[in-house]
């Protein structure tokens, strides 16, 4: 009897926990459909006008384009330098390989605002201060670990025998990579790219330091908009962004099966 009581208490706690986790998100989704001219919850009626309002504010459109370009660019760059590193690191044993892996993942552990602040001065000294190139470089620094961690994780689980078989049958290393290794690690590349894209798209503490009318990313514009206005446009924009992330996740999951990979960590 007492046993059941404890189990019920635990289940009730978990339900409360998920109410806590979902409330701030659901509330924004609901507010984005409000008919009111102000932010209030519960909403007085339903409307789509705030979604239209996103496109009436030019800085949002400009920033959306910048954010897309930076996120795609940083992800491609991360894949270009990260995937080759994984091909070695996922199979290597020994202290050196471990140390290299730790180093390549270390940007994840550093405060973003420090990376942003330090990079602004350093890149300005190099002559590429506030520019699209600077955004691309700094975003790649924080996107690279996501690509490396995911691709290395997937590649470590791939048996060597496939590649060995191909090599014994006469395929040269380039062919082995293209026809055997690449298809096997593609789920990891897609999932890593998705995490990398979302990380870049959501980044504020780094992008903030590289803001200008032509290099403001979406979060930077959203933050400055919130400093002057507290209206449901931000809710609509957030909901749109969430819908985009969910669709991307479902598509990648349907094609490659993300659930087979460990997302934890």
């Amino acid at each position: 009897m007492r046993r059941d009581w404890i189990n019920i208490a635990l289940a009730a706690f978990v339900v409360l926990f998920f109410i806590f986790m979902l409330a701030p998100i659901l509330v924004v989704v609901v507010v984005s459909f409000t008919a009111a001219g102000y932010v209030a919850f519960p909403i007085p009626g339903w409307s789509l006008k705030w979604f239209g309002n996103i496109f009436a504010y030019q800085p949002f459109i400009d920033a959306l384009l910048v954010s897309f370009q930076v996120a795609i660019g940083a992800t491609l760059l991360s894949c270009a330098i990260g995937i080759p590193a994984c091909l070695f690191l996922a199979r290597a044993r020994g202290a050196w390989a471990g140390a290299i892996m730790t180093f390549l993942l270390s940007p994840l552990s550093m405060p973003m605002i420090v990376i942003g602040f330090a990079s602004l001065f350093f890149l300005s000294w190099l002559g590429i201060g506030i520019s699209f190139t600077a955004l691309l470089i700094t975003h790649t620094v924080v996107c690279l670990p996501y690509v490396i961690r995911t691709v290395a994780g997937v590649y470590a689980g791939v048996p060597r025998s496939y590649e060995e078989a191909a090599a014994i049958l006469g395929a040269n290393p380039a062919k082995v990579f293209w026809h055997v290794t690449l298809p096997l690690i593609r789920p990891g590349i897609m999932a890593g790219s998705l995490f990398s894209f979302l990380t870049s798209f959501d980044n504020l503490p780094i992008s903030y330091f590289f803001g200008s009318s032509s290099t403001n990313t979406l979060p930077v514009v959203m933050l400055s908009y919130l400093e002057h206005q507290f209206d449901p446009t931000i809710a609509a924009l957030s909901t749109l962004q969430l819908a985009m992330a969910v669709v991307a996740l479902i598509v990648v999951d349907r094609i490659y099966g993300i659930d087979k990979m460990t997302v934890a960590g």
Binding site: A23, P24, I25, V27, V28, V31, Y38, V39, A40, F41, L198, F201, D202, L204, P219, M222, L223, L226, F230, I234, A235, S238, T239, Q241, L242, A245, V246, L249
Partner: peptide, 18 residues
């Protein structure tokens, strides 16, 4: 999957004056 701004905005909405 949600942006950090969305979650922070959510807290503002929950605890705003209205």
């Amino acid at each position: 999957l949600t942006s950090i701004i969305m979650r922070t905005f959510g807290w503002q909405v929950l605890f705003a004056r209205r």
